[in-house]
């Protein structure tokens, strides 16, 4: 047993030594990895419209601007901000203004992220009901009357409340607080992700069932469905701070681009191109529709749009 003890001591000493070695690389570590203009990383959040931006930008950057490798990294909106801050990604092409805290921290305090201008698309979030239901019950279109109709929206998971179909986990939403602060008799259903929510709504729409949902524009699925917005108290600057006290509806958000500060400065043509990148809701929807509805690959969808819209994208390419 004595021998065992010696081995044990040696092992423990070895463990200790190993951790000392790990510690003793004792200089301050580098904090930044900076991308070069040869390689551009664009963050892609989970919704299809934003993927349309990224796919088209990637294709054009590679084919027309001459960037060697464009990486599209799947990152949800809030995490994308962290990636922009630490240089793991270079650009966000579509931000819905849902991260006020991170914006302040990274843009104003640490100056690691800079604004990249309008995407050209205006986003709007709201509470929507299908038109066939609103036609029958026009009063529903005012939030004050929602409780009267709550029973129509009951489901097997909402108890005696109405079911409110909620946003995907990473999306900007104040629904929880709106429902609480207006004492609405609704329970939010967590759909888990955008596609699951859209699928659920398409199914209900096809069956002409009543439903009320967190919904937004632009969205490719709106081409096939008639949805009407429920009026919430109007948005005013600062009315959703702190968010737990929110009583107002959602703003119209001109969607924004953001870049890593180093990339914006040293990114050359690639950064220039991404700053110029600006298109309309219809154009974005066209590409999004190809991806989501026709199930084309992102690359094929981008290629198809690029072929037909040279006049639009030519303006984005930096002059040599």
């Amino acid at each position: 047993m004595n021998h065992n003890k010696r081995i044990r001591t040696a092992v423990i000493a070895g463990l200790g030594a190993a951790s000392m070695v790990a510690l003793s690389a004792c200089s301050a570590a580098d904090t930044k990895s900076s991308g070069s203009a040869d390689e551009v990383t664009i963050t892609v959040p989970s919704w299809v419209g934003a993927r349309a931006n990224a796919e088209v930008a990637k294709k054009l950057l590679e084919d027309e601007v001459g960037v060697k490798k464009v990486e599209l990294q799947q990152l949800d909106e809030p995490i994308a901000w962290d990636a922009l801050n630490n240089g793991k990604a270079d650009a966000i092409l579509e931000d819905w203004d849902g991260q006020p805290k991170k914006q302040k921290l990274y843009i104003d305090d640490k100056k690691t992220v800079v604004k990249g201008g309008d995407l050209g698309v205006t986003g709007h979030i709201g509470w929507y009901v299908p038109k066939y239901y609103a036609d029958k019950h026009p009063e529903i279109l005012d939030y004050k009357n929602l409780n009267k109709f709550a029973k129509d929206f009951k489901s097997n998971r909402s108890g005696d409340k109405g079911e409110f179909i909620g946003a995907a986990p990473s999306y900007t939403t104040y629904d929880e607080f709106l429902i609480k602060n207006h004492k609405l008799n609704f329970k939010i259903k967590d759909t888990g992700n955008e596609a699951a929510q859209i699928k659920e709504i398409q199914r209900k729409y096809a069956a002409k069932e009543p439903f009320i949902s967190y919904w937004w524009e632009p969205l490719w699925a709106n081409a096939d469905m008639d949805m009407v917005e429920v009026k919430l108290p109007p948005f005013e600057e600062g009315c959703n701070e702190p968010e737990t006290k929110t009583k107002c509806g959602y703003a119209n958000t001109p969607l924004q681009k953001y870049f890593n500060a180093d990339f914006a400065k040293d990114g050359g043509d690639a950064a220039e191109f991404l700053k110029n990148f600006k298109w309309t809701t219809e154009e974005q929807n066209e590409v999004a529709m190809s991806i989501a509805k026709d199930k084309m690959s992102g690359e094929a969808a981008a290629e198809k749009w690029i072929k037909d819209n040279k006049a639009t994208w030519e303006k984005w390419i930096p002059k040599k």
Partner: peptide, 21 residues
């Protein structure tokens, strides 16, 4: 399963992860 509509604790973890909350 929170990612596909399971709700409850699972979706809270996903939300925490993706929103940095």
């Amino acid at each position: 399963g929170g990612m596909i509509g399971g709700g409850a604790l699972g979706v809270d973890v996903v939300r925490g992860l993706t929103k940095g909350d």
